Simulated assay, not measured.
Amino acid sequence: MAFQKVLKKGFYFAIKNTNNTDKETALTAIILASICSYKDTKIQKEFKHLIKEFEKKRTEKVNLKNLQLLLQYAIVYFEVNEEYPKGLKNLIIDYYKVLSSEKITKELLPSFLLLTTANKQHISSKHVPFSLKIASNFTTMTKKEIGFLLNEIEQKTYHGLVSITNHPFKLITILEAFLITACSDYNLQQVSRILNALSYVNAPNSLAINTALTFLTHNQSTNGFIGYYEKEFSSLEKNQKVNKIGIQLSSTLQTISAMLTYKTGFRFYTSLGKNDKQKKYEMELIQTSIS
């Protein structure tokens, strides 16, 4: 019941910002609203109306800076309408341009790999459970190296779309240790990614996980956003411009998505690979764009 309140507060914080003039902020808000409406019939109806209005105002031009958000928006739109939004052709073509350039970043790579896989086959129906093998040396891992481990888990499990058959206790133990460290460092992004990883490897409930979930819940404001960054905001010089709402939305999106993933088995990328006809069309577009 308490978690439903977290979702509702997050939802109404998101819809207040869907008309934001900053496109990246607006996209983040609509994706957050979609996640918060998960399995809540009342706010799902509200969200369907919201996304129709949002789509009327959205421009089709793709900005490479927002490519990952546009990919996530396409997934959200598909879940509501069972088709992809206008401008997907540009999204796919620009996706391939990025892959063939030096503009790709480590943060974007997992989503790009997901899109590649989805264009080739059904992730959710054609993969069978597998035994997870990780190459990392857990005993010598540093804070910086934990990111590489999380990337490996995300990529091998396709962000949790493929289940695993083994129960990697050693891996779970090190993830839980870094989870508590991330909480003490007030690194909400890291807390969220580790919670996702623990869900993907089928980690059982534990004191460390419950502590992290409680920590995230207690960091939700009365306005609905998660993550207090007033100290960081106040330390900025007067001439420094910062998009506070954008930062709050991004933080809230990451944390609520991670909480939902662990607590309910929610998987954001489930719709990838669902539509045979659409996937055939996408592949034709890709061949056209790279030929």
Results as ranks from 00 to 15, higher is better:
Ile146Leu: 05
Ser184Ala: 10
Leu260Ile: 11
Lys241Ile: 15
Tyr186His: 13
Glu284Asn: 15
Val128Cys: 14
Thr25Gln: 01
Ala118Asn: 03
Tyr228Glu: 07
Gln4Ile: 11
Pro204Thr: 06
Tyr200Asn: 00
Thr18Met: 00
Lys8Ala: 09
Val76Glu: 01
Leu50Lys: 14
Thr21Ile: 10
Leu69Asn: 10
Leu50Gly: 05
Lys263Glu: 07
Gln44Glu: 09
Thr18Glu: 05
Ile31Arg: 02
Thr217Lys: 15
Leu171Tyr: 04
Ser257Pro: 14
Glu55Trp: 08
Thr264His: 15
Leu285Asn: 12
Ala33Cys: 03
Leu114Trp: 00
Met141Asn: 05
Phe233Trp: 11
Gln44Phe: 10
Leu249Met: 03
Asn187Phe: 03
Lys133Tyr: 15
Ala26Asn: 01
Thr117Leu: 10
Gln121Cys: 07
Ser257Val: 09
Ala26His: 02
Leu108His: 12
Tyr262Leu: 09
Lys65Ala: 12
Thr28Arg: 12
Ala2Asn: 13
Ile290Ser: 04
Asn187Gln: 02
Lys263Trp: 13
Tyr269Gly: 04
Asn239Ser: 12
Leu213Pro: 07
Asn90Lys: 15
Lys231Met: 09
Gly224Met: 07
Ile31Asp: 00
Ile134Pro: 01
Leu115Asp: 04
Glu102Cys: 01
Leu213Asp: 05
Pro85Arg: 03
Lys156Trp: 05
Arg58His: 05
Tyr262Cys: 07
Thr270Pro: 03
Asn19Trp: 03
Ser221Leu: 05
Ser37Asn: 02
Lys5Thr: 14
Tyr77Asn: 02
Val76Asn: 01
Lys8Gln: 15
Ser257Asn: 12
Ser235Val: 01
Leu272Pro: 06
Thr173Phe: 12
Gly265Trp: 09
Phe215Cys: 00
Lys238Gly: 10
Leu71Trp: 13
Gly87Asn: 00
Phe112Ser: 04
Ala2Thr: 14
Leu69Cys: 04
Met259Phe: 12
Lys231Phe: 13
Lys97Asn: 06
Lys143His: 14
Lys231Leu: 15
Asn137Glu: 11
Ile180Asp: 05
Ser257Thr: 15
Glu55Asn: 13
